[in-house]
């Protein structure tokens, strides 16, 4: 079977899987950003208990494997009475896992905003929430965006694991085609190329664009 024939036969399946991967990626990225900001700021809270909760979350997700977490959420969590559909279990777990990595980026960036900015906001009598939202976070965002670019690619790669809890993403479809036809090179090769195109020509340029926009908005371009 030539490669073109392969594509015309299985292209539709692979395209469907690609859409699923895309959906998982976008949702997981949103969860990761939200979890990272919340837990990253919690790590800086003045209360020991709040800091402790964030630390436990971060160490728990960073210290274990994403695959273990996925299986745990999918197979063991229902025993606690929380049954998630595999689609939700997939992006939530991937998002929470990489959110824990992102939390350190958020914390590091907030801490590295120059002290004068904190003092100036204090001098203007801003409330802590307002100071964080209007003064510190926008500047922290510019500092942390470059490493977030790498993390986004990691999230995209992480979504491939949801295939193992049978979410029908690109990885899943490639595996199905492989076991039905043994056209391994074509099936896995095509999937590899699709992931590569996503990461290299969509996710990375988009993050670069965001970096430029944000840098310009706070007048550093």
């Amino acid at each position: 079977m030539s490669y073109l024939e392969f594509l015309s036969t299985y292209g539709e399946l692979l395209a469907g899987g690609t859409l699923m991967t895309l959906a998982q990626f976008v949702l997981a990225a949103l969860v990761a950003v939200a979890a990272a900001i919340v837990s990253g700021l919690m790590r800086l809270a003045p209360f020991k208990l709040v800091r402790g909760i964030a630390t436990v979350y971060i160490e728990l997700f960073r210290g274990t494997s994403l695959l273990v977490q996925l299986y745990w959420v999918f197979f063991a969590l229902p025993l606690f009475g929380v049954s998630l559909h595999k689609f939700a279990a997939g992006f939530l777990t991937v998002g929470l896992c990489f959110g824990a990595y992102g939390a350190e980026l958020v914390r590091g960036a907030v801490v590295s905003v120059p002290k004068g900015q904190w003092e100036a906001a204090l001098a203007l009598n801003m409330s802590p929430a307002r100071r964080m939202w209007r003064i510190i976070l926008p500047q922290a965002l510019v500092i942390m965006l470059p490493p977030w670019g790498n993390l986004m690619v990691e999230i995209l790669k992480g979504t491939a694991l949801v295939a193992l809890i049978s979410v029908t993403d690109l990885m899943f479809e490639a595996r199905q085609i492989n076991s039905a036809t043994y056209l391994s090179a074509q099936a896995f090769g095509t999937a590899l190329i699709v992931y590569y195109i996503f990461a290299r020509f969509m996710v990375t340029p988009m993050m670069r664009w965001l970096e430029r926009i944000m840098a310009r908005r706070i007048g550093r371009a």
Partner: peptide, 20 residues
Amino acid sequence: FVRSTPLLLQVFFVYYVGPQ
């Protein structure tokens, strides 16, 4: 290329395409 594609997929690729 290796950095931007999933390890899981690479594992499958090496294992199944190797014999071919």
